[in-house]
Design a binder for these strands. Sequence first.
DNA 1: GCCGTTTTCGGCCCGACTGTTTTCAGTCG
Length: 620
Amino acid sequence: MLAETTTNATGKKEIFSNKEIHRVLRNVAASYLILNENKFKVIAYQKAADTVEHLTRELHDIWQEGSLKDVPGIGPSIGSHIDEYFRTGRSSHFEKVFKGIPPSVFALMKVPTIGPKTAFKLAQELHISYPKKAVEKLEEAAKKGRIRSIPTFGEKSEGEIIQAIEAYKKGGMQMERMVLPYAHERAVHLMDYLKKNPLIKRIDALGSMRRMVSTIGDIDIAAVITDETKSSEVIHYFTQYEGTTRIDNAGEAKASIIVPPHIRVDLRIQSESTYGTMLQYFTGSKAHNIKLRDYANKIGFSISEYGVKPTRKFKNSNYKKYSFNRNKEMFEFSNEETLYEFLGLPFIPPEIREGTNEIDLAKKNGLPLLVELKDIRGDFHIHSSYDISTSHDVGKNTYKEIFQNADTLGYEYVGFADHNPKTSGSTSEDITAIMKKRKADIEKQLSSLKQTELHYFIGLEVDILTSGELALPAGALEYVDYLIVSVHSVFSMDVEQMTKRILKALSFPKVKILGHPTGRLLTKRNGYKFDWNQICKEAVERNIGIEINAWPERLDASDSMVRSGIEKGVQFFINTDAHANEQMGNMLYGVEVARRGWASKSDIINTLSYKKVKEWLECC
DNA sequence: GCCGTTTTCGGCCCGACTGTTTTCAGTCG
C-alpha cells in the first residue's frame, strides 16, 4: 500500500498526494462494502474520497495547518486515520481493513462493470490474489468458460466481462480525454444526426461539456421528444448512429453507445414539462447533484430528474406559483432557473457546479458574478507573421490584418506578442536593432489605417532561460510596452529549481504577464512542476498578471489554479496565443476557464478600458 | 462514519439498466 516515493508539484511525497489519499479512501469504502459493513459507513468513506479527489489544495498542507476537521466529510474517525498516515506513512486501521481483501480486488475493480462485490467474488472463486496480473488472469478464466459456473454469473455476464476487459485494455492505452472543442465538434455531429429524427423536438449537450470542463471524458445528450410513447423508437435510432462500435445499454428512457475512438455517448429522453430537472440532473456534476439533493432533503424536498417531491407537509401558499403534478405528487419544472428559485437559490452557473462550496454560498447569495466573453476588451498575446528571426513558430497574419480582425471582434486594444528573436548567432546590438526596426514597422503599417477606436500595444513573448534570465537584451526593452515571459524549454527541472527560474524571470523590468504558466499540453504533456503559491505571491507583489492561455490544448492557468490565485489576490489575463486570425476566436475557451475558476470581471485585467489598462501596464 | 434550515440523534441523492433471478443486487451516472 505504500506508493513510490517520488515528489509531486508541491514537493510533497507522492504517498501523501491527494491522488493517493483518494485511492486509499476509495479502497477502504470498497472493502467495507465487501465486508457488509454498515452501508452509511461505506458512503462516509466514499464521500471523504470524493472530497479529497476534488480538493483544490493538498490535503497534506491542510493537515499541517491543523485544519483537517474543516474538510467536509472528514470527521474525527477518518481524520485520525489520515493523521496517523501523514505522521507515519501508514495507517494501522486501514491496513486492518485491507487484511481480509485480496489486493487483486482493487485491480479488478478498474475494469468497467466490475464493482467491489463482483471483484471480490471473482478473486475468491478463481483464486486470483495478486494485483499485477489479475485482469489478465480474469480474462483467461473468462475465455476458458470458467466464470459461467460461478453462482449468480452466467454465459451472458461471462461475455460481458470479456468485452469489458477489452474496453479496459483499449481505454488503458489511451486514457486521454478529449479537448473541449474536439468533443464539442463530435457532439454537434451527433446532435445533427439526432435532429434528423422527426420525433425529436429539442436537444442539448450537457454534462461536463455544458460545464465547459477543459477536457471531456464522455458526451452527454438530453432530448425532448414530441410523442412520449415512442421513446424506444428514438433510442433505437440513436443506437444506429454511424460508426457505433458498441451499444452499452439501451432502455426506454436512456441509452449509451460507444463511438470511435472509444467515446461514450449517453442519451436521456424526457418530456418537455419536466425538462428543467433533467437539465439540472444531467449537467451535474455528480458532486453538485448530491449536495443539491442533500440540501433539498433538509428543507423537505426530494429532487430527481423528473421533479421535486415534498417529503413532509409544506405550506401550499409558499409554492402556489409552481406547477404541481397531482398524479405524481411532485412539482415539475420545465426550466432550471425556476427549479433553483424554488429551492430558494439563485441560478448557479453550470461552470461552477462542481460540489465545492457553491451551494453554501448560493444560500447566502454570495456567488460571484462571473466574467463573460463580452467583458473582454482586448487580447495581449498574438503572434504575427513579421520576421524577427525567432526560433519559434511565427504567425500567419500581418500586424495590419491582426489589427483589423481585432477591430471586427469589437476590441478596444490589441497586443502584438511575437516570440523574441533568437539569441544564438546574434549580438545584443543586432537584437536591439531588430526590435527597433520592428517597432518602426508596426507604427508604419498601422498609421495608414483609418481612424478607429482600437489601440495597440507592442509586446513580446520572451523565453525564460534555464537560469531565469530572459532571452532579450536590456537595450531592446525600449521598443516594447510589455513583456510576456514563458518557459518553452527544459521542462524537467525539479520544483525548487523551476520555481527559482520563474521567480527570477518575473524580476525584470516590463515583465507584465507570466505566459501559459504550466507549459502543459492537454492530453499530450503534463506541465512542469513549480511552487504555485510562491509564484502567486511574487506576481501580486510585482503587479504581474498571470495568463489564462485560451489555446484549447493549453488552457493554463487551470480552473483550480485560477480559483486559488484569486484567493491570493492574483490578477489574470485571458489571452489567445493566436498564431492566425481565426484563432483569436478561441478567447471563449479562456473565459470559460476563468469562469470555472470563479473569476469575475475585476479579476481579469483585459476587461479594463484602454485608459485603465494602459495605466496598469505603465504602473510600477 | 458524518453531520446539523428539524436534529447532538437519526437520518444519509436518486433512478435506470442488466443479469440472474422469481424479487433483487450490483453497477453506473
